[in-house]
Design a protein around this nucleic acid. Structure first.
Lengths: 107, 107
DNA sequence: CAATCTCGTAAGCCACGACTTACCGTAAGT
DNA sequence: ACTTACGGTAAGTCGTGGCTTACGAGATTG
């Protein structure tokens, strides 16, 4: 049910860049902003959205907060995609079969 | 490389609704618009974007055009998600290991 | 050929959201 | 306690894109 919020969050290029930056290792906000072409508050706002979407986890460590990718959200997204992919393949096969029947293969 | 355009296209709720409508069977534009709360030209514009993103295929059939989900784009998206998921799990395990070491488990 | 159905495109409006600067808490270091 | 680093929030600007209505092009039917 939350996959909709997650995939909507992934629509923004900056947020995908954040994901790519966190792909290797968790990072605090300042380090994250240093790798991106936008200001630190902008990153902070994106992080808020991504945390709400379940895409990231936030771990306070003293004065700083470490953000990391939450694999659970990705798993849910993957499941949704898998089901969609499966249905698409099925309806694709159905369409092909109907097409063949229409083209003179009625047996 | 095209997965970025595809996932950006999936960011819009109306486009996801189009995907859901095409999930069972391919449809022409008018039938698609009838199931959605927006006008037919709006649907047409979304279809254009989704075709450009590789998410849909367009098959002219006389005066009408039949749109269907293209499984290939979904496969590419799935691969991207899988790799991201894998990296996230790895860095998650790394972080847990580093944390354990820091908490007095040096052997 | 005329009438109608199909659909894409153009023009314009409007809201949403991404970004910036400025500010204020909170934690660590001296 | 003062100072410095870290980071979330508020307020405001501005571009982007999703929607609508109006129109035009091609196919089908009579």
């Amino acid at each position: 049910m939350a996959y909709e919020i997650a995939i909507a969050a992934l629509g923004d290029p900056t947020r995908r860049a954040i994901l790519e930056a966190l792909r290797a290792r968790p990072l605090p906000v300042a380090a994250l902003a240093a790798e991106l072409p936008v200001s630190r508050p902008a990153v902070s706002q994106h992080l808020k959205v991504m945390c709400a979407a379940g895409l990231l986890t936030c771990t306070p460590s003293g004065a700083r907060r470490i953000y990391a990718i939450d694999p659970a959200a990705l798993a849910e997204l993957r499941d949704w995609l898998d089901r969609l992919w499966d249905d698409a393949l099925t309806s694709f096969a159905d369409a092909a079969r109907a097409q063949a029947r229409r083209s003179g293969d009625p047996a």
